[in-house]
């Protein structure tokens, strides 16, 4: 079973995302900020990371930059999931190695479609 780390400082968002991702066949772990996420990745590198941008302690972009420098850190597919929805944020995320980008609010169709675009799940019908 593929592993997905859900990183968001909102417990509600983590819960919603987790339910959808588990429905898509992922085994999920959660982290409340970028630093906690990095610790989780050092312990076990996931196949995918669903990543909020604005979080306390370490934000999503700083986590992504750090992750890509870790041994094996180039492997996880990283999907941003954030309210930052302007072109500047999106291009910066892509430049630093994000694979896909979800703009909140999202729903099940969007998450499935984006994970398929990132090569992670069969396309939604």
């Amino acid at each position: 079973m593929k592993q997905c780390l859900v990183v968001d400082d909102s417990r509600v968002i983590r819960k919603v995302a987790r339910r959808i991702l588990e429905g898509m066949g992922f085994e999920c772990d959660e982290a409340g900020d970028g630093a906690a996420a990095l610790t989780a990745c050092r312990h076990q590198m996931p196949d995918a990371v669903l990543l909020d941008w604005s979080m306390p302690v370490m934000n999503g972009l700083d986590f992504l930059k750090a992750l890509r420098k870790e041994p094996g850190g180039e492997k996880p597919v990283v999907v941003f999931c954030t309210t930052e929805n302007d072109m500047a944020h999106i291009t910066e995320a892509l430049r630093h190695g994000a694979d896909e980008y979800v703009m909140k609010p999202f729903d099940e169709d969007i998450l499935e479609s984006k994970f398929a675009d990132a090569g992670l799940a069969p396309a939604a019908a």
Binding site: M87, I90, I110, K114
Partner: peptide, 18 residues
């Protein structure tokens, strides 16, 4: 925002949309 996230990969959004 919902429509551009259905089926459209983010790189194509960046490349072809304003």
């Amino acid at each position: 925002q919902f429509e551009v996230q259905r089926g459209l990969p983010i790189r194509r959004l960046v490349e072809h949309f304003d």
